Computed example of a mutant assay.
Amino acid sequence: MTYTGDVRVGGPSDVRVLDELEIRKAAVGPMQNNVYLLTCRVVGAQLLVDAADDPDRLLALLREGTTQLDLVVTTHRHADHSRALASVVAVTGARVAAGADDADAVAESTDIAVTQRLHDGDTVRVGNVTLTVVGLRGHTPGSVALAYREPGGRVHLFTGDSLFPGGVGKTSGPEAFEQLYRDVVERVFDRFGDDTWVYPGHGPDTTLGAERGQLPQWRARGW
């Protein structure tokens, strides 16, 4: 079946098979958070983007892959993206990574140590696959995205709550919006092509090409 990214809480995950990587998307919790399981097709290592909620559903998602879990990347400090973190780590023993400026808040709210503090330009590995960290400050100070480039091909970008269809994520005021808008333009739209697939923290997926023409509108409205 063709991947669409259309998932619902209580429904099945959607699966995308790439050259070296499988991507599974599911929705969990009352805020309908998206979670993404990345599986290296060569060695079976797995990375979870946001242990958001419903640990039983997340553990079932792991079993759709290879059962093991090597790393959880928490995209930002907001509690709806880490409510199941303690339970998932207790069962799997996975390491935890988060943006450096959000790491202490994640650790305090979950009582789980953040073992890898991420900065813009860092890399994380899942088996033989390397993903690049993209710092997108503004929704929170330490929000991060993960970018995976297929060999010679499309980029896949996991953006948390920093970029959605129709705009950037919510910010606390004009200064934070300016920071997030600038990072999204300079670190995402100026860097990656229109075929880049965007996997957000809530709701449907999009591409940079579908959003690029709206950038002036986002800037003018300030959100």
Rank of each mutant, 00 (worst) to 15 (best):
E178N: 08
N34M: 03
D195A: 12
V124S: 01
R125M: 12
K25G: 01
V28L: 05
Y36M: 01
K25W: 03
G65W: 02
R191A: 14
D104G: 15
G167H: 02
L163I: 11
A86H: 10
R41H: 03
D50F: 05
S162M: 06
R221L: 14
R77D: 13
G193L: 12
V73M: 02
G10I: 04
T2S: 13
F192N: 06
T2L: 14
R221Q: 13
R57T: 11
R187E: 08
T130W: 10
A27R: 07
Q116Y: 15
N34V: 04
R41M: 02
A45K: 15
L146T: 03
E186D: 12
W197Y: 14
Y36F: 09
G44I: 03
K170T: 12
V126Q: 01
T196Y: 00
T2V: 09
V49N: 05
P216F: 05
L71G: 04
A176W: 05
V9N: 09
G160W: 02
T2D: 09
A51H: 04
D194W: 08
T110L: 06
G44V: 02
D6Q: 09
R137Q: 13
A94F: 01
T206H: 04
G44H: 04
G167S: 05
D120S: 04
R212I: 08
F158M: 05
T39K: 08
V7K: 05
A98V: 00
G203K: 03
P30Q: 12
L18Q: 06
E186C: 15
E20P: 10
V89T: 10
S172V: 13
M31F: 15
L131M: 13
G166C: 06
R154Y: 08
D56N: 12
A105E: 09
V188R: 00
R219D: 10
G153T: 04
S109F: 10
E108T: 14
Q214R: 13
D80K: 15
R191W: 08
V91T: 14
L47Y: 02
L21E: 06
G173L: 02
V124A: 05
R77T: 13
V43C: 13
P55V: 07
R182W: 11
V144P: 04
G5A: 06
Q179R: 15
A145Y: 00
A90L: 14
S172P: 08
D6T: 15
C40M: 11
R154A: 13
T110E: 07
L163M: 07
T196W: 06
R57N: 07
G203I: 03
V72P: 00
D122Q: 07
A145P: 00
A79T: 14
V106C: 08
E186F: 12
T92L: 00
G160M: 00
A26I: 09
S162I: 00
A90P: 08
D183L: 06
S162N: 01
T4C: 11
D101Y: 09
V15S: 15
V126K: 03
I112H: 11
N34P: 03
T115E: 13
H139E: 11
P165V: 09
